[in-house]
Design a binder for these strands. Structure first.
Lengths: 110, 110
DNA sequence: TAGATCTACAACCGAATGGTTGTAGATGAA
DNA sequence: TTCATCTACAACCATTCGGTTGTAGATCTA
């Protein structure tokens, strides 16, 4: 899923498919590559759950799935929160530690 | 940068390097792969700005850079927000528009 | 100094990626 | 029906990825 987000073209497809009004062909027209290439990108996004396709006649409309996007965002959220907590805990430890020798040994980075 | 996040081992390295206390060798001991492989992962994370290395004697301590993580999170944030705004705008349009034929004609946007 | 440890990096390999072209099936329109 | 359009997918190619082993430089320790 992060892999699906790792390509600039795919991220752009995600942005442009927010409304869910564009067919694969119409999307493909926006990029300097073949229809088949864009089709592959859409498939990758679809398998990552970032996008859904809906048939309308002979065309297939692409729309981004917000749930998956927010799931990825929350994953990074957790990572950031964990980091913040860890730093807070270390700062607290350093604050209540007044021995310079030990403080020096533990100083590491901030 | 999303590419750096796209590998499970690298995401785990990010988590375990939050404290900035682990050397590359110590990190490598946690994974079922060679030291060189882990070293490569750390390099990828470093070039993506997700991690920094700091020499201490002969070892190199790895610590995650929170700024980059939060930047990635905010990127997804923007995507999600854009989606929500788009949906809101569409709902409002549909709500104030009661003529089904016109609604159909206006849907296409382009 | 000698030896152990930590790191850096090159060379290689198989598999996956991102792109291409070509072919074929559905669907809509004349 | 016939033709154009949209989609799906296979086959292929060059490059990148994730892993390996091997070699060599730095730094600590006995």
């Amino acid at each position: 899923m992060f892999h699906a987000l790792a390509d600039a073209t795919r991220r752009d497809i995600l942005r442009r498919s927010i409304g869910g009004e564009l067919s694969v062909t119409r999307l493909a027209a926006s990029y300097p590559m073949s229809f088949a290439a864009v089709q592959k990108h859409v498939t990758v996004l679809e398998r990552a759950g970032l996008v859904t396709k809906e048939r309308r006649g002979r065309e297939q409309l692409v729309s981004t799935a917000p749930d998956a996007v927010s799931r990825a965002r929350r994953a990074l959220d957790r990572l950031e929160t964990a980091w913040r907590e860890r730093v807070d805990r270390m700062s607290r430890l350093l604050a209540q530690d007044t021995d310079p020798a030990r403080a020096n040994r533990t100083r590491g980075r901030n």
